[in-house]
Amino acid sequence: MITIEPSLAWGLRIAMVVLIGLALLHKLRAPLEFRSAMQAYLRNTVLDKESIVSFLSLTVITLELAITFLVAVAWWPLVGAVALATLFLIYGVAMAANLLRGNALLDCGCSWGADRQPATWHRVWGNAGLSALSLLLAVPVVERPANNIDLFVAGAFAGFVIILYAISNQLMANSGRLEQKL
């Protein structure tokens, strides 16, 4: 049976809660901006109606809130991990669907840690990676007494994952500018 070191499991859990929590906070602080991003995703589809956009915006916020709570408390690790992985997958699929139908999104709504940036295939793969990483939260933790080093490593690992995410996000934003050839 596959197991994971407690410090890594805690670190990953803290990092995911911080990342999804900050994304949620951003949506709550700028609800109109989030609504515009949602409307852009649904442009020229049967769902492009004021009432549906409002409903879906509220649904996504509620879902993120519930999933952040589930992952943070870790009462049902499998449910939390699968829900988080599914959420990242849904975002990725939504971006991919818009890229395939030629709907160039001004703002992918995923610019935490960097500037506003359009949806790209890099972002779709990034979401697939986050989804896979989220599933690690369902892996059972090695049962042994935790010590101070474990706590320190968990905190440091969480910080490192968050910094890596911010770096990759910034590099993806830069890559969009590089493709403009100037």
Partner: peptide
């Protein structure tokens, strides 16, 4: 040693993040 390595790693990460932002 472990603590110093983690501090170094996070410090390096912050430097790379700063550089990436400057490029942007």
């Amino acid at each position: 040693i472990i603590a110093l390595q983690w501090i170094g790693l996070i410090g390096l990460g912050l430097v790379v993040l700063g550089l990436a932002r400057q490029i942007g």
